[in-house]
Write a protein that binds this DNA or RNA. Structure first.
Lengths: 265, 265
DNA sequence: CGCCACTTTGAATTAGCTCAAATTCCGTGG
DNA sequence: CCACGGAATTTGAGCTAATTCAAAGTGGCG
């Protein structure tokens, strides 16, 4: 967790942001998210007509691509849910990303000519395969395609940084809360219902993604449920009901406030 | 840290990688890195002739771009050293990336039309400013430029994932060791001397980047020095001598092996 | 119906954090 | 040139959040 602010002489002064009130900021963010979501789904149609990509139905456990495999294709997820797993030569293995409808896969392969991660389906879904060279050719003809592509890459970069930030600056409980918030937000942005989400990951996978153990994930979920921030339906604990997504953000904020936060555990 | 492998039924089997021996793997990686480094520097020349970018000399503390600012330019670092700082509405602040010569900056701004991070110079250097629309236009004329651009974005995605992986799966000491390894490697890949590096970050900044406190960074560095993995020159502790970069990797490996690792602290 | 994987919860342990104090470094001004 | 002061660093000691280890509970599926 953070300790000191980095208020070195070299740190920048952030004037413009301070001028915007918190709530206006939130509304602005929501609007932009909505629009981004719409654009992302619209891009699917454009891709489809421009490239007529090969479609493939995948099931839980199917590997879309694997680290080390020669790069040649990008993929777009039209339905389902996919995890990106990074692994090192010494055997460490980690979930470094989660992909939903409209997300692209395989960017990591461009630089070195081979993929550096595994992409594994967590659910039944549909993946579109797009040959990279064909895509480039199409982009030259049709510059809006290029925009779509770059936006997808940009989004991925921003998201990865948010993940890192979350892992580095939030305590475990808050990380789980933010994870659920992110998931619900991802669904909402795609026009799907977000008040009831079905985690298709085990506690171990969630913990791996968030940099904690499965027990800690379990405890965090229990605590969130105790605090009414989430709820489990009668039977089973894979489904999570989120009565109010703002309660998740509030929980994160609360766990950052040192004082007054410890009323009820 | 990791607890269980994610060897769920849905986990992929990694056959091809196992067939390659560790050392061959290392050599292959080194070769690819070298080539990537050369390509990255070569790309600078290409950019220069194709776009004649505006050059700007920056000094420590100068802000290249700031979160919230309208997106319009990408930047390429021709000399110097830059940190990327992410910040949240609740005031958390984190270094999420470090950029060296040949790296691009500003990709995070493409998706939302505004930058989502701050880029701050840590040192005297030169930044090239490239208008994004001009770049797109040039890419259509000159598809190799497009390749250069995409490779840069791809590299960034892969690097961000490695950061996340490091933070999530390594103990603090090893994270510091890997950080130094990454830094030295970054210099080496650019043809710079890597046996003596000058950290232009305080312990607090390093800790922030690695998700630990400045004290932990300090202790980790002391431990590395005690183990001869690194050395401090007579006066000052900002410079770090790295007699053998492989010792850093070895240290990381060792701290992952539970047994037999605790001979000397 | 019973197995097996997943989950929950508890108790003990520990890595890393917080707090505190001493030390070193470096720029600045006398 | 040297003394001074503030910032950065180091190191120690105690504390806490999260891990490890262990055991019991639950649910899904053949």
């Amino acid at each position: 967790m953070l300790q000191t602010t980095l208020a070195t002489p070299s740190a920048p002064v952030h004037l413009p942001r301070a001028a915007m009130t918190r709530s206006a900021d939130a509304i602005e963010t929501a609007r932009r998210d909505d629009e981004a979501g719409r654009r992302m789904i619209a891009a699917l149609g454009q891709l489809n007509t421009a490239l007529a990509p090969q479609r493939r139905v995948v099931h839980a456990g199917d590997v879309i691509y694997q680290a080390g495999e020669r790069f040649g294709n990008l993929y777009v997820l039209n339905a389902g849910f996919i995890k990106i797993v990074n692994l090192t030569s010494d055997g460490r293995e980690q979930v470094v990303g989660l992909k939903f409808r409209g997300d692209w896969l395989g960017f990591d392969g461009i630089a070195n000519g081979q993929y550096s991660c595994d992409a594994v389906a967590m659910d039944t879904g549909e993946v579109w395969t797009i040959r990279y060279d064909a895509l480039l050719a199409a982009c030259v003809q049709q510059p809006t395609l290029l925009t779509v592509l770059h936006e997808a890459m940009s989004r991925e970069i921003a998201q990865d940084r948010n993940s890192l930030m979350s892992v580095c600056t939030l305590p475990a409980d808050a990380r789980v809360a933010e994870f659920l918030h992110y998931w619900a937000g991802s669904l909402a942005r795609r026009g799907l219902r977000a008040d009831q989400i079905t985690l298709r990951m085990t506690r171990a996978e969630i913990g791996n993604y968030l940099g904690m153990t499965l027990e800690t994930v379990s405890r965090a979920l229990s605590k969130l449920a105790r605090g009414q921030v989430i709820a489990f339906p009668e039977k089973g604990r894979r489904d999570i009901r989120i009565p109010d997504i703002r309660a998740l953000s509030a929980f994160v904020q609360q766990s950052l406030a040192p004082e007054a936060a410890t009323m009820l555990q």
